[in-house]
């Protein structure tokens, strides 16, 4: 009985450890792969990856995109979660008309309420999909503003040599979102909407009202 419980705990740790090691190995492999692979010659524009999330996040991100110079940033790949059709529909209607936009979908790592163990294969699937999106887009710039789906795409984008600009959500006044906390150390620029957050996080930048 005791032995069985011990074995169970041990097996769980092994699985966690193996998953972490596999993730790290993937990350390093991708880093070397992307840095070794020659970049497409391109037309001098900045290939950009934008991660859209649920309702509020999407609106804020689209407002931010509206100000970018479409002749400098493109093609712009908009990434949405596969089950999130509202974001895609909303975004399609609000995109700046001159933006050279393409779409990509990735499955969610974990639907709300899904048990943790059942999330292992779905997480792997989501990671692979994110890697495929990054590989296809070859971004030099990744923009994201906080939905959970943005973390794997943003991390892989950084591994692939892109600059990551993270914009925290307007509703975060006192503390960072989970995505924000995870990406704060790797983001090249980190933008917040409230002075209090800038005071707490030295790398965060406050630009006044931007959306």
């Amino acid at each position: 009985m005791l032995n069985e419980a011990l074995w169970h705990a041990y097996a769980e740790r092994m699985i966690d450890g193996a998953a972490a090691a596999a993730a790290l190995a993937c990350f390093l492999l991708l880093t070397f792969y992307f840095h070794a692979a020659p970049r497409a010659a391109g037309d001098g524009r900045v290939p950009t990856l934008v991660v859209l999330g649920s309702g509020g996040h999407t609106t804020e991100m689209l407002r931010l995109l509206g100000g970018l110079d479409a002749s400098r940033y493109g093609p712009v790949t908009l990434v949405v979660a596969a089950s999130d059709t509202t974001s895609a529909a909303k975004a399609a209607g609000m995109l700046p008309p001159d933006l050279d936009a393409t779409w990509a979908t990735i499955p969610r790592a974990r639907e709300v309420g899904q048990p943790f163990v059942a999330a292992v294969p779905t997480t792997l699937r989501a990671l692979c999909a994110a890697a495929a999106v990054v590989h296809r887009a070859r971004p030099r710039l990744v923009l994201c503003n906080g939905p959970g789906t943005c973390v794997p795409v943003a991390a892989l984008g950084v591994a692939a040599g892109a600059r990551l600009i993270f914009v925290e959500s307007w509703c975060r006044v006192e503390s960072l979102s989970l995505s924000g906390r995870l990406l704060y150390p790797v983001a090249h620029r980190f933008v917040v909407h409230w002075p209090r957050l800038r005071d707490r996080y030295p790398r965060a930048e406050y630009l006044g009202r931007i959306c």
Binding site: G67, L68, D69, R189, G208, R209, I210
Partner: peptide, 10 residues
């Protein structure tokens, strides 16, 4: 809204 601030940062 300062619409130019974010593009300037990018």
């Amino acid at each position: 809204v300062d619409a130019a601030a974010f593009p300037r940062l990018v």
